[in-house]
């Protein structure tokens, strides 16, 4: 029997059903391309991708909590670490790091050097304003909202725009008071 404590992202990724990443990457790419054709405005595509991510995030949080065995984080710092080390790893199979904390501990950056969403992707000049990976920021925002954290998630660096990595800024706006049915007396 495995211990009942939190599990590492690697261990979870090794144990879940996995699929060929090409299928995922190309499906995402084809979806973005279709949205660009249908919506025409790049800004509108950014918005829709974020909305799609949000809808995914609010559902995916349950699977995340169930598989990771993580009950609650003591502060936002731990939350950010868990997203980077466990969340991104168990779903996308990639490692991320957390940096650039502000003094209050409410704003940080999650940095990805590797991102399966963008394999084989090159943006044409007509898509300059496109935040291609906006679905990912939406997922994080949606998932955090389900655990009572209102956040703002923005892309600071993007390899598709020539940066050396992907940097997602996660800013905690409001922590909604939690009303759990159980006592928090550990």
């Amino acid at each position: 029997m495995p211990p009942a404590g939190p599990r590492s992202g690697d261990a979870i990724f090794a144990s879940v059903e996995r699929v060929n990443a090409e299928l995922f990457t190309l499906t995402y790419g084809a979806t973005v391309r279709q949205l660009l054709t249908d919506l025409e405005e790049v800004e509108e595509v950014n918005k829709q991708l974020d909305q799609m991510g949000y809808n995914i995030g609010i559902r995916l949080i349950d699977e995340f909590l169930a598989k990771s065995n993580i009950s609650r984080c003591v502060d936002f710092k731990e939350t950010a670490d868990v997203i980077a080390k466990v969340g991104l790893k168990m779903f996308l199979g990639v490692n991320a790091t957390v940096t650039n904390w502000d003094a209050e501990g409410t704003c940080c950056s999650i940095v990805l050097e590797d991102n399966p969403l963008v394999d084989f992707v090159e943006l044409p000049d007509t898509c300059q304003g496109l935040h291609y990976c906006n679905i990912l920021s939406g997922v994080i925002r949606g998932a955090l909202e389900m655990v009572s954290m209102k956040t703002e998630v923005t892309w600071l660096r993007d390899m598709l725009r020539g940066d050396d990595s992907f940097e997602l800024q996660v800013k905690l706006l409001k922590q909604v008071p939690e009303e759990y049915p159980y006592k928090d007396d550990e």
Binding site: V16, E17, R18, V19, N20, L23, F24, T27, T31, F91
Partner: peptide
């Protein structure tokens, strides 16, 4: 073997799309 992602990624993406 090539790169893989969790099956939930493709399932979630398809459902949402």
């Amino acid at each position: 073997m090539g790169r893989e992602v969790s099956e939930s990624c493709i399932d979630s993406l398809l459902t949402e799309m």
